[in-house]
């Protein structure tokens, strides 16, 4: 029978155990994963199983890295997403967290655009570090993404997005993520991307301020190609701030909506698009 071990196919006799596969391919492995889930050496394998063998603490070679990093993915997901190009407009509280989630998922290419610099008031919710204060957010985030997954190609655009440059910056993005702070800018981005690319999906965030229940943050289809993540009502305003937990919930709704779109699933409900 054929077993895929660390992204390479190998032949084994019927009823081979996980331990015997480990002993033949990577005897010093101390973390054994079968079809996305940790398993013990006594496990008997079946034809077509996907096995990942990891030695804890070892830095893998570049070829092996993809297989090891995505060992806990649902099988098949990584192969589908690694060819994808996703645009992210704004890399503040929403966009920085979305970019990190998508990089960990193994999306092949991220186009990130933002004019802003990292400042201390960002650090209550945005995925930046003290030693990045003063840097353009798109370059700071690019460096962070490279530390997580060097196989993700990142195109960083340090500029202010306008009606004139949106189609050029995101011309290759098959899905656009709206991750701005200001409502008028969210509308401007969506109108202009839709005018140029009416058949490409957009995933937007609206209503994630404060510390209301996380359960009111939802993903809804609000137009033919527009999915909205948030509670749709709670604005950032005097007396209602923006904080890491609820902004993070909305950001990960957006990242999951992107993943579901790439896998052909409907972002807002069970089942296919």
């Amino acid at each position: 029978m054929q077993i895929k071990v660390n992204e390479q196919y190998h032949s084994f006799g019927e009823k081979a155990s996980l331990g015997s596969v480990r002993d033949r391919i990577k005897a010093d492995a101390d973390l054994l994963i079968v079809n996305g889930f940790p398993a013990s050496a006594e496990n008997v394998l079946s034809n077509g199983d996907q096995v990942v063998l990891i030695k804890r603490g070892e830095t893998p070679g570049i070829e092996e890295f993809d297989a090891l990093m995505t060992a806990r993915h649902t099988p098949g997901v990584h192969a589908t997403v690694k060819g994808a190009t996703i645009g992210i407009a704004g890399v503040g509280g929403l966009g920085s967290a979305i970019a990190i989630a998508l990089a960990r998922t193994g999306i092949g290419h991220l186009i990130i655009a933002d004019f802003d610099l990292v400042e201390p008031s960002n650090l209550n919710r945005q995925q930046f570090f003290i030693d990045q204060i003063g840097l353009p957010k798109v370059y700071a985030l690019r460096d962070t993404l490279a530390r997580i997954n060097p196989h993700v190609r990142v195109t960083s655009c340090h500029l202010r997005l306008t009606p004139e440059n949106i189609a050029e910056v995101f011309g290759h993005a098959q899905i656009l993520v709206e991750a701005f702070d200001i409502a008028e800018q969210k509308v401007m981005l969506i109108e202009n991307f839709a005018a140029r690319f009416p058949d490409r999906p957009m995933v937007t965030g609206s209503g994630m301020a404060g510390y209301g229940p996380a359960n009111t943050v939802m993903t809804q289809q609000v137009a033919r190609n527009l999915y909205l993540c948030g509670d749709a009502t709670t604005a950032a305003a005097p007396g209602t701030g923006l904080m890491a937990p609820r902004v993070g919930v909305a950001a990960h709704h957006q990242a999951n909506a992107v993943l579901r779109l790439l896998l052909g699933e409907s972002p807002d409900k069970e089942g296919k698009l």
Binding site: G93, A183, T204, M208, G230, L242
Partner: peptide
């Protein structure tokens, strides 16, 4: 007609 109202924050 769908009218989607946006609020600030991100």
């Amino acid at each position: 007609l769908e009218v989607i109202h946006f609020v600030g924050g991100g």
